[in-house]
Design a protein around this nucleic acid. Structure first.
Lengths: 339, 339
DNA sequence: CTGAAAGCGCTTACAG
DNA sequence: CTGAAAGCGCTTACAG
């Protein structure tokens, strides 16, 4: 059974394709009777407009692209959910691509999305991305782009972020206030803005509270995995016997660290306090439960789509586009891993 | 900057659109020189074929649809990752929709995907789905469909599954072998085949080992959430003081149950042993770590796409399509929550 | 080796 | 109120 076309309906009814098309879209210049006839037949035949043709005519696909570093990831899957939900409300579909933290893949995928002629792109950058030409190229070709979470400050487009620096400051200050004297930091890779900002927040909190910043207490992680949490927790114990607090860039790593410290009989939080970042669901069920920064993933997804949608609409109506930067609130969630 | 078209390249070079098109696609009947000229200019102008037009002509979109009950879910996100990875290898893009376990939504989304003219659809059914007309309708319109994990036996299409019944049998038998005398089961809703099969495996293992099947030990859950794990664990303690083992349909629920039992001072596994299902990452880091059935999500995603791809190719070449049912292996992962 | 022409299935400005 | 016609940007069978 081939899909039904306008032509088929027109021939069956003995009227023109034009009239069928207009009837289905409730144009005011079609008689009620014709509309009724057309709509009934369309219903019976289960007619659905061929999106390929509609896209070609209207030059929109009602589809957006989403590039995300990693799909199996509590925070990002919450973001995905928010994006899909909001997109669906506005009649948009979402194509998802995973960059695997690779700049090369991210570039290729952006190209792919462009040739698909998606109406816009949402992106959270790969750790490997240090050059932004691919993003600017896409925008130069009139494809709206909105960045979220892992952004590049230098790229001129709308963005949805949290204040990583402030949140990291709050976390570190909490460790200080609870009595920690020697606070380490497990940071993310060098390129991503959010790992830079979290590091800066950590450092600032120390300095503001009379601590001497000691670079040897900062460990630069790469994969941000559970295993790295294991590894660097062990490393830290070896390097610095006096550490009594760690602020860790991501919950997954923090959970790895807790796992290692538990195994070695280090008491959390009595010997060492730990704060993570992101509030993964897991963090509320491990033992001890993890103090962390809650980052609103679902809301971030919804907001990112909203900004993109606004831009798509503006461009369509030839209105000036004003880039917006929306900062979402974070919250320190205090649990058992801190005093 | 408007996207570049074939026409533009043709005019610049003073040749026909036909020749440009053929040159770019390396048709043998175009001179080397012309090919070189065309390709160079296309490169310079960053020409990408307009997918809308290509789709309309070729009647394929190189895009598939994926409908999944819930995105924020360890198992399903692994499946998504597998699908995206395999699809990308074959030059396909993936549109993701979330049914939220709702039959109505699932139906609407299938319609949407059909009007988008995706080349095929991968689906894992919503808990609410008890009628399958929407699936058969889609296939009647020549859209290939492959089901995975949450399938309907009665629908005639390719499927990727695990042997839920056997896996549940293995899990329950393990509880029996480790000395449990009174084994409860937290099962999923009534409609999904996998919650039925897991229940049947549980029951069979009991019967095969000389237990009397007691329906009051089976709790029917709805949301399959952490909170339900809390709730039904408490309920179970109230109803049956003699229970010493629970086989639970999903890790997330099992983790909720462990959480509640820990809180109430029930010793796991000494007082009550627990086995979950799915091997969520979380299960290896909670305390006690959870014995569970490992379900290969990533592999399931890859396999599902492969079957779909095969069917798309066959149809394209007008070859007969043979539906396949692939059963993936599961594994009992023994951890601390059992003796 | 090159290109004119038809056509994929729509939408919409325009004429009647 | 209805419909003929142009056109979106490609691909490909066909003629030369």
């Amino acid at each position: 059974m081939k899909p039904v076309t306008l032509k088929e309906i027109a021939e069956t009814l003995g009227i023109s394709i034009t009239t069928v098309s207009k009837a289905l879209k409730d144009y005011p210049d079609v008689s009620k009777k014709t509309k009724r006839l057309v709509k009934e037949l369309a219903q019976t035949l289960n007619y659905k407009p061929n999106a390929f043709a509609v896209n070609l005519r209207t030059k929109e696909s009602k589809t957006i692209g989403l590039i995300i570093p990693e799909v199996v990831h509590h925070f990002f899957s919450s973001v995905i959910k928010g994006i899909i939900a909001q997109a669906e409300k506005k009649g948009y579909l979402v194509i998802i691509l995973q960059s695997n933290e690779s700049y090369e893949l991210e570039k290729k995928q952006l190209d792919l999305l462009f040739s698909k002629r998606v109406d816009g792109v949402l992106i959270s950058l790969a750790n490997g991305t240090g050059d932004f030409k691919h993003l600017n190229d896409l925008m130069a070709q009139e494809t709206p782009l909105v960045m979220f979470d892992k952004i590049a400050k230098i790229v001129n487009c709308s963005k949805v972020i949290i204040n990583d620096r402030k949140a990291a400051y709050t976390a570190t200050k909490y460790l200080i206030d609870s009595g920690c004297k020697r606070i380490a930091h497990f940071r993310g890779p060098l390129l991503p803005q959010n790992s830079i900002d979290r590091f800066l927040g950590y450092k600032q909190a120390l300095v503001d509270h009379g601590f001497v910043y000691d670079p040897s207490l900062v460990y630069i992680l790469d994969a941000m995995s559970f295993d790295e949490g294991n590894y660097y927790a062990a490393q830290l114990l070896k390097d610095h016997k006096d550490v009594d607090g760690i602020f860790i860039n991501t919950d997954l790593v923090a959970i790895g660290a807790i796992n290692e410290l538990n195994k070695r009989g280090v008491k959390i939080p009595d010997d060492i306090s730990i704060i993570g970042f992101s509030n993964w669901f897991m963090s509320s069920v491990i033992s001890p439960t993890l103090t962390t920064i809650d980052q609103p993933g679902y809301l971030m997804g919804k907001t990112a789509f909203k900004l993109l949608y606004k831009e798509i609409k503006k461009r369509k109506n030839n209105q000036a586009v004003v880039y917006e930067e929306v900062e979402l609130p974070t919250e320190l969630i205090i649990r058992e891993s801190t005093k």
